[in-house]
Computed example of a mutant assay.
Amino acid sequence: MTSPGDTEHPAPGRWLLLLLFLAICCAVAVVGAVAAGDAGSTYTSLRLPGWAPPGWLFGPVWTVLYATIAVAGWLIARTRRPGNRTALLWWSVQLVLNLAWTPLFFGAERYGLALVDILLLVTALIVTMVKFARLHTWAAVLLAPYLVWVSYASALNCSIWLANT
């Protein structure tokens, strides 16, 4: 949580920093989409559990999640307190693991390896949230829907791997 003694970037720099975090998350989304190829066709061709979401839902959900991921990172980056570099390192680790999942799952169709990646992502995300919570409560709270979605996606990934190998 921020406190009155925290120092922050000046106002113009603050908004440029937010644009940088949004651009980073947008780049992850675009690279993931390109690496996925025709993810929609791949997804519909799989044996899916009855609780699998419809393919059209992924785009809107990830758009919101990437925005919250960016804002959470920005909140930490603009607060200069001990531990924010470590927190941002964990933010970066979870984002790299996020980026790796799509090419593993859709591009390479390596569902087991994608499952390992997404479980590492859940772990890194939990660590990120703990680090964020020590610095800015809302930054951690903003990541909660992402954790719920990625946990659900982990179960879905596992189910798909077991049904399609």
Score class of each variant (00 low, 15 high):
T128W: 01
L18H: 06
N164I: 04
V28K: 01
A144P: 00
T7Q: 15
S92T: 15
T128Q: 05
A144V: 15
A35L: 10
V34G: 02
N164M: 10
A124Y: 04
H9R: 14
T7I: 14
L48F: 08
D117H: 05
W149G: 06
L19F: 01
R81N: 04
C26A: 14
W161M: 08
L95H: 02
A139D: 06
T123N: 03
V150Y: 01
P145V: 13
N84S: 15
L119F: 09
L65E: 00
S3T: 14
L156M: 11
A144M: 11
Y111V: 10
K131H: 12
W62L: 09
V31C: 09
H9D: 13
T44W: 06
V96T: 14
T165A: 07
W51E: 08
P60Q: 07
R14Q: 11
G55H: 08
P4V: 09
W138F: 09
L22Q: 04
I76E: 05
L156D: 11
A108G: 02
G59N: 02
L48Q: 10
R80V: 14
V141E: 03
G37S: 07
L89E: 02
L125N: 12
G83Q: 12
D38M: 01
G32A: 09
R47K: 13
V64H: 00
R81G: 10
Y111Q: 09
H136I: 08
L156A: 08
K131Y: 07
V93K: 04
C158A: 15
L120F: 06
L120N: 03
L97V: 04
P103K: 09
L113D: 12
T44M: 08
R110W: 10
A23C: 07
A33M: 04
Y152L: 12
G107P: 02
L46G: 11
R85V: 13
A87E: 02
F58W: 06
N164H: 14
A108F: 04
L57D: 00
A140V: 08
L97W: 01
Q94R: 08
C158G: 13
W161A: 13
N157A: 02
R78A: 10
T68P: 00
A139Y: 05
T165C: 03
R47F: 01
N164S: 14
L147E: 00
S151G: 14
Y152A: 12
S151V: 15
S154M: 05
L19M: 04
A153K: 00
A153L: 11
W62H: 02
N164K: 07
S92F: 15
A77R: 11
Y146A: 06
A87D: 04
C26T: 13
Y146M: 09
Y111R: 09
W74Q: 05
W62M: 05
R85D: 05
L65C: 04
P60Y: 02
A114I: 07
A124T: 12
I126G: 13
P10R: 11
A39Q: 10
R134K: 13
M1N: 10
V130T: 03
W15G: 04
T7D: 15
K131W: 03
L142S: 06
A153P: 01
F106P: 03
S45E: 14
C25W: 00
L22F: 10
F132E: 08
A153W: 07
A100N: 06
Y66P: 05
A87P: 08
S41D: 15
A114K: 01
T42R: 00
T44D: 15
E109S: 09
E109R: 15
R134W: 03
G107S: 04
C26R: 06
P60C: 10
V122H: 01
